[in-house]
C-alpha cells in the first residue's frame, strides 16, 4: 500500500476552525474510501513550513495563491453549504 497523502489544514489560529475542517475532511474522504494524514497550522507559521511531502493545502482563510501545491478553500465544510463540491475538488486535486 502506498503511503498516506498529507493534507495541511490552515486557519487563522491553527486551532478552532482548522480542527473543525480537519475532522470534516477526514470523515468525508473516508466515506469515499480515501485515507489521508492531516496536519494543522496557522497562517503565521505557513511560510516557515516545509511543503515537500504535503499534497494539498486546505484553508479556512484566504491565502495568496503562490504555493507549489494546490490550495482549496474549505469554508463550505464549516457552513455545510456546497460541502460535496469542496470534497470533490479536494479528491480531484489530490489524485
Amino acid at each position: 500500500m502506498k503511503e498516506k497523502k498529507v493534507i495541511l489544514v490552515v486557519c487563522g489560529s491553527g486551532i478552532a476552525t482548522s480542527t473543525a475542517a480537519a475532522q470534516e475532511i477526514k470523515k468525508k474522504l473516508a466515506e469515499h474510501g480515501i485515507y489521508v494524514e492531516i496536519r494543522q497550522t496557522n497562517v503565521f507559521a505557513l511560510p516557515t513550513i516545509d511543503l515537500k511531502d504535503v499534497s494539498l493545502i486546505a484553508s479556512t482563510c484566504r491565502l495568496e495563491n503562490n504555493y507549489s501545491i494546490p490550495v482549496v478553500n474549505v469554508v463550505p465544510l464549516l457552513t455545510g453549504i456546497n460541502e460535496d463540491k469542496v470534497i470533490e475538488e479536494i479528491i480531484k486535486k489530490l489524485l
Partner: peptide
C-alpha cells in the same frame, strides 16, 4: 446569514 468565526478573515494581508 450563517454566523462564523472571524478566524476566516485572519489570513488577509492588511489584517495580519
Amino acid at each position: 446569514y450563517l454566523g462564523m468565526d472571524t478566524a476566516l478573515c485572519v489570513g488577509e494581508a492588511s489584517t495580519l
